[in-house]
Design a protein around this nucleic acid. Structure first.
Lengths: 146, 146
DNA sequence: TGAGATTCAGATACTTTTATCTTAAATTAT
DNA sequence: ATAATTTAAGATAAAAGTATCTGAATCTCA
């Protein structure tokens, strides 16, 4: 199975986007997130914990506690999330896994992939969570989950 | 960790490229491949078996046996290998994993990713194993392994 | 025909990722 | 204070991916 980002990373992106739909500063519990987004409770807990540790979210315990964005939604890019969870290894390794592939000894798709990779990088850097949330703020978004 | 293709797929691409460096029809044993490419013996065996079953390679048992390309090198594209091992799910799923993302209800990077994905697809379809082999046929290629 | 070399196939083990369980710590409200 | 609710943290389990082991089947060549 080809994938780009880990499942953890996908969950993180979904959760952070959901938080961006909420009024600024409002806390959202794991329970609500896990229910609306259909993500395993404790697994999501660990992911959010991680993002909170890295400053992308803030957390609070107790009743009325939960998670909220640690920065304005428009200051959190997709790349921030991806880098926090998956790292940025996809920016450096040969996409086909050839160990000897490098700019001085390139495989046949080295340059081509370099351009695509850069484009994907720009896509991640130039899109923020506010935009993600806006795109998702549709009837279908809420309707699909239950 | 972000990845594009599975390790199996990377091994497959490397092995098939190596076979393309050989004279047409010459069989190469797993032993040689595993030694030159530093890929686990039995793991590679299963992968090649799989590719042979799917017609991309031919195999022969016994002394002087081994594996060879099942088609002319220039008729085997990267996509043939990727599709055989990893499938083509990356062509259809939302790159960020949003379950409700579709062309009628796109996430904020849906169209952007669509263009990148198409570019990557073209890269895989337009490059064949002969080209891969040519790019790798350099002193460094042999020197790095042992 | 028999020995050796090789792929084939199934079982097993290891590793990483994903998911769950349990208890502790913190916070809120009664 | 106490109870209830929530995150924090560590241990454990399940699943998927990667790797190894063993024996069978097949082929070549002496």
């Amino acid at each position: 199975m080809s994938i780009i980002f880990s499942r953890q990373c996908e969950y993180a992106l979904q959760a952070v986007t959901y938080l961006a739909l909420k009024p600024v500063g409002e806390k959202t519990s794991i329970k609500e997130l896990t229910k609306k987004l259909d993500i395993p409770y404790h697994f999501l807990g660990k992911i959010l914990q991680d993002l909170a540790y890295k400053g992308l979210l803030i957390s609070q315990k107790g009743p009325t506690g939960g998670f909220a964005l640690g920065l304005p939604a428009r200051d959190i890019t997709l790349f921030h999330i991806v880098e926090a969870i998956d790292g940025s290894g996809f920016m450096t390794n040969c996409v086909l896994g050839f160990p000897e592939c490098s700019s001085s000894n390139p495989c046949a798709v080295h340059d081509s992939w370099g351009r695509h990779r850069e484009g994907i990088y720009q896509m991640l850097v130039n899109r923020n969570i506010a935009e993600m949330a806006r795109a998702m703020k549709k009837p279908e978004y809420v309707a699909i989950r239950r």
